[in-house]
Nucleic acid binder design. Sequence first.
DNA 1: GGGCTTTTTTGATCTCGATCAAGGCAGCCG
DNA 2: CGGCTGCCTTGATCGAGATCAAAAAAGCCC
Lengths: 245, 245
Amino acid sequence: MQIMTQPNQKNSHSEIPIACVACHAREGGVCGTLSPSQLAQVVRKTARRRVQPQIEIIGQGDGIEHCAAIVRGVVKLSKMLADGRQQIVGLQFAPDFLGTPFLRECSLSAEAVTNVDLCVFPRALIERLAAEAPDLQRRLHVETLKKLCAARDWMLTLGRKTAKERVANFLYLVATRINFEDGPAREFDLPLSRADIADYLGLTIETVSRQITRLRKEGVIRVENRRRIIVPDIRRLMKNASIDS
Amino acid sequence: MQIMTQPNQKNSHSEIPIACVACHAREGGVCGTLSPSQLAQVVRKTARRRVQPQIEIIGQGDGIEHCAAIVRGVVKLSKMLADGRQQIVGLQFAPDFLGTPFLRECSLSAEAVTNVDLCVFPRALIERLAAEAPDLQRRLHVETLKKLCAARDWMLTLGRKTAKERVANFLYLVATRINFEDGPAREFDLPLSRADIADYLGLTIETVSRQITRLRKEGVIRVENRRRIIVPDIRRLMKNASIDS
DNA sequence: GGGCTTTTTTGATCTCGATCAAGGCAGCCG
DNA sequence: CGGCTGCCTTGATCGAGATCAAAAAAGCCC
């Protein structure tokens, strides 16, 4: 499924760039250094969109004609083999950028795992503005570099860590990314089902469940209603994940 | 160990940018769109360097002050846990770019696996030129996007493929990347030892060896002198790697 | 609440790849 | 040539996580 292209008429024009800025609040916003006329283009071509859980945002192998910034919610990026085996290759939280301008042939599918609010742009707009505004290009590049670094960290997890370490690593990752401003959350709701966690960790749901139980029994975490995780001591969780701090 | 900083006096000035261009020949070279004065800066600040196998180019956690383009040879990027478990998170062939300008905190170590010729620049130079030349910034960004795509492909391999598929996948990867101009090589020398292959695939050397034997006995590959691989039918190798073409 | 589905947990067993242990083979140097 | 060293291969056994199976808990709709 493609990202919708129509600008959302219900939003006032002034709201949209604020959303974009919010998306990249950590660094002052993607639109931060654009000229007034460039900002006006963004306003005209940008659409807000709300996506329900389990709805595909970008399909595997689509010619991707749009990009988006996540305003709220969690998006999973996954790859699938012909026989159905699946691997989640990235989790994106607000205010991450979705899509690969400047590169066409990267097949992966993006799917909302919670309710997601997006700020959608045409790919061509981003590419044009990036060519005009070096700082925008640089900032998108830095975001890509961070994703590359995260992907490589996860390769270490997938290739060399035990099931228990992987689960602890996942919990640590969610704790640190769920609130993008503050440090690691002490208490949070898991955005993913056990099946999705398994697909992210290269494990089965049974193994994920058993390792969560194990961490719970060892007192590393507390679990309420299967979804809510409480971490009394983040250091202890990191040790269980073999994260050297 | 840091990359050497001294420009190599033995190289004529005219040779160096040619080397850079050669590094990025597929797209016309990193230096392709620079002005004459920018090119002169590159000439002044660039050093050629030859690196022996198993020599570290950039250490894990170094404050990385240099970047490099690979002119010849193969470089492995790896991450290690405190207890010694290791994962190779990327293999770079000529004419790949090494280093992460614009981003400081990504800990990984780069090590030559064959004799490697590099073209070394100060990080600051690249960052300055990229700010001035939007096309250079864009091209570096595209290279990073490709690496991200490759890393995510590898996550699928690490998370969901069997030992045999992983080994076949690795052979296919080397076949396609060892000669950057042509298509997949039908015959090539493995640049990595069994131990390095194991670290790349998240397996042990024994399992790697057994799966190579198995692929050999099934006629998917022929092996000469343990290092030389002959692939009679690349399609068959891809099928064994579960690569959907 | 009661019946239904879906998700998660727990238990029993199996299997692929790890581990432990030799043995083979090539390169190197005397 | 023979002994040595460092990879690589092969064999035997073990174990972490997969698979198969079922029970328990939560959500959902009436």
